[in-house]
Simulated scan of single mutants.
Amino acid sequence: MTGAPLSSSTPAAMLAWDLPTRLAKWGLAALVGLAFASRYWGDAALVWHQWNGLAILVVLVFRLLWGLVGGSTARFAGFLAGPAAVLGYAGRLLKGRPPHFLGHNPLGGWMVLALLAIVAAQGLTGLFTSDDIIVYGPMTPVVSDETIRSASSWHQRLYPFLLALIALHVLANLAYSLFGRDNLIRAMVTGCKPAATYTDRAPATPGGVGLAFACLGLSVLIVFGGIALAGGHPFP
């Protein structure tokens, strides 16, 4: 199906992504940027950088929970497609005739998962990172020196891949917004797309506000409580 306009009686716009999904996306983007700033321009003991990393982990856990119980376009089951669907979409995209999705398209869905995975890896390795002088991650008291050295090394190695994925994600969204029929950047700000016939479910079903707060509270408990139960120090 294509993105052809609906009848004049149809509202001009329809919900694409609910508010918790958008807040998680933009909040995570801001926190990743602040993590970079606090790493190079923060305090010597990297206390703010550690708080930044813990906040990232909270948002990541929230997004994983919201991907299970949130709005229809936020759920992983709704936008993670199999190889055949991804290849089919890529082929039609190269021909200039991609189907239009209200939520994430098959390629975009896997890009979202890849970004979440590498940010999670960056955040988790940060828990075990130390410079052996003044910086000690929350989980360093309960692991071996070898684990700390390995985690510290991976924390640095993953960084270029994270930057590359972020750049690819931004470029893809800009390309869709400037040259395609979907202004993805505007849609992720407003939550809406023009009313049309989309390949996936339309209109989107939003997740409940109470459920979002419950997921956020559970995320804080999982991150800080998990570190404490494992014997680490959850508060830098």
Rank of each mutant, 00 (worst) to 15 (best):
G3Y: 05
G3E: 09
A4V: 10
T10Q: 13
P11G: 10
A16E: 06
D18Y: 10
T21G: 05
R22Q: 12
L23W: 05
A30M: 14
Y40H: 15
W41D: 03
D43K: 06
V47A: 15
W48N: 05
Q50W: 03
G53K: 11
L64V: 14
L65Q: 02
G67R: 10
S72G: 09
T73E: 14
A74L: 06
R75P: 05
L80F: 08
A84L: 08
A84I: 06
G88A: 06
G91D: 12
F101W: 06
H104M: 03
G109P: 00
W110T: 04
I118Q: 06
V119P: 01
G123N: 10
G126R: 12
I134C: 01
Y136N: 10
V143G: 09
D145T: 04
T147D: 03
S152W: 04
Q156K: 03
A164R: 09
H169S: 10
A172C: 02
A172N: 01
A175T: 06
Y176D: 14
G180C: 14
L184S: 08
M188I: 06
V189C: 11
K193W: 07
P194N: 08
A196C: 09
G208R: 12
G210I: 08
G210K: 13
A214M: 13
G217V: 08
A230I: 07
G232K: 08
H233G: 11
